[in-house]
C-alpha cells in the first residue's frame, strides 16, 4: 500500500497520497434506506438530477396550489366563514393534474433504474431487493401525498385565518387527510406497478394516465346509467373500479365526508368493503412489486 510521502517544501506542499483505506464508521442498511428514500423523494420533484426535470412536477404543483390560494384570498377578502371548496372533494376536482403528476413521476422512481441497469448496482449492496422496492414505493407515496395534501392544507390554514369554526373545519380537514393518505397509497401502488413493468417512460406515462382516467370515466358513466335505472347495487359495485371513487367511498361513509361521485356507499357495510378493497389493492400491489424486484437481482 502506498504511503504519504514528501516533506514540506518551500512554496507549497505536494502530497502523493495514494490510496487511503477507509477506517471510518460504516452505517447499517437503515441509513442506506433513509438516504435512498430522501433521494427518491427529491427526484420525484425533479431535484437532484438534470435541471429540466424540475419543470413538469413544479408546474403541476403550482397548478394544484394556486386555485386553493385563490379561494383562500377570496374567503379572507369577502370575510366568508365557510370555505368555498370542500377538503374532501378537492382532489377529485383536480383529478387530471394529480393523474398527470403520478403518471409522469412514477417512472422516475421505478423505470429509471431498471432501464439503465443501475438496479444491479443497488442490489449488489447490503440493501435487500425487498427493502429497495418498499423504499422506492415510500418515496413515491410521500411525494404524491405532499402533492395532494399541500393545497388542502392551504385551504385549511386559510379557513382558520378567516375565523371559520375551528372544530368543524379541523374535523373535516383530518377526515380529508386520511382520505388523501389512502388515495396516495393506492395511486403510488398502481403507478409503481405500471412503471416498473413497462420501463419505457413514454409508455408508462400513457398507460397510467389512460388506466386512471378511463377507469374513472367508466365508473362515472356506469353510475350515471344505473342511477337512472334505479339499480343502486350495480352503481356501488362499479365504484370499486377506480381509485378515486374507491377512496371517495371510504371517505364518505367512514369519515363523514362529502362525495364527488354519484353513488357513494351509504351503509357501513359498503364503506368497510370499499376500505377493504383499497387496503387489499395496496397490499397486493406491494407484494407484486417486491416479487418483481426480487427477480431482477438475477438479471
Amino acid at each position: 500500500m502506498a504511503l504519504p510521502t514528501e516533506a514540506p517544501r518551500p512554496g507549497g506542499v505536494i502530497h502523493d497520497i495514494g490510496y487511503r483505506p477507509y477506517t471510518g464508521p460504516r452505517l447499517d442498511t437503515d441509513a442506506a434506506a433513509r438516504s435512498l428514500f430522501v433521494t427518491g423523494l427529491l427526484n420525484a420533484y425533479g431535484i437532484g438530477r438534470s435541471g429540466r426535470a424540475k419543470g413538469l412536477p413544479m408546474t403541476l404543483l403550482a397548478l394544484m396550489v394556486v386555485p386553493a390560494a385563490i379561494m383562500v384570498a377570496v374567503m379572507v377578502t369577502l370575510r366568508l366563514t365557510e370555505p368555498l371548496l370542500n377538503y374532501g372533494t378537492y382532489p377529485v376536482t383536480l383529478m387530471l393534474i394529480i393523474v398527470i403528476f403520478v403518471a409522469a413521476q412514477a417512472p422516475v422512481l421505478f423505470s429509471r433504474d431498471l432501464r439503465s441497469g443501475a438496479i444491479s448496482l443497488y442490489l449488489a449492496r447490503p440493501l435487500s431487493s425487498t427493502a429497495y422496492a418498499l423504499v422506492r414505493w415510500a418515496s413515491l407515496f410521500v411525494a404524491i401525498l405532499l402533492f395532494i395534501a399541500l393545497p388542502v392544507i392551504v385551504l385549511y390554514v386559510g379557513a382558520l385565518t378567516a375565523e371559520a369554526d375551528i372544530a368543524e373545519q379541523s374535523r373535516d380537514f383530518f377526515a380529508a387527510v386520511v382520505g388523501i393518505v389512502l388515495l396516495s397509497a393506492v395511486l403510488a401502488t398502481l403507478s409503481g406497478l405500471v412503471a416498473s413493468h413497462t420501463r419505457r417512460r413514454g409508455l408508462a406515462v400513457g398507460v397510467t394516465i389512460i388506466a386512471l382516467l378511463v377507469s374513472t370515466g367508466v365508473v362515472t358513466a356506469v353510475q350515471a346509467i344505473t342511477a337512472e335505472a334505479g339499480n343502486e347495487t350495480a352503481g356501488l359495485l362499479a365504484g370499486l373500479f377506480s381509485p378515486f371513487s374507491l377512496v371517495d367511498g371510504v371517505q364518505v361513509e367512514l369519515l363523514g365526508g362529502q362525495s364527488s361521485f354519484q353513488v357513494p356507499p351509504d351503509t357501513t357495510g359498503w364503506g368497510l368493503l370499499y376500505l377493504a378493497v383499497s387496503l387489499a389493492l395496496v397490499a397486493g400491489g406491494l407484494w407484486l412489486l417486491v416479487r418483481y424486484y426480487r427477480k431482477q437481482a438475477g438479471r
Binding site: 370515466g217 358513466a221 350515471a224 344505473t226 339499480n231
Partner: peptide, 30 residues
C-alpha cells in the same frame, strides 16, 4: 363490455340516454 353491462343493467331500455355517455364521450372521445 360497457355496452353489454348497460344493456343488462337497464334491461335493454337505456339506449337513448346511454348513447351519449358511452358512444360519444367514451367511445369516440376516449
Amino acid at each position: 363490455g360497457l355496452c353489454l353491462l348497460v344493456q343488462v343493467l337497464t334491461s335493454g331500455d337505456a339506449a337513448a340516454t346511454s348513447f351519449e355517455p358511452v358512444i360519444v364521450v367514451f367511445g369516440l372521445g376516449l
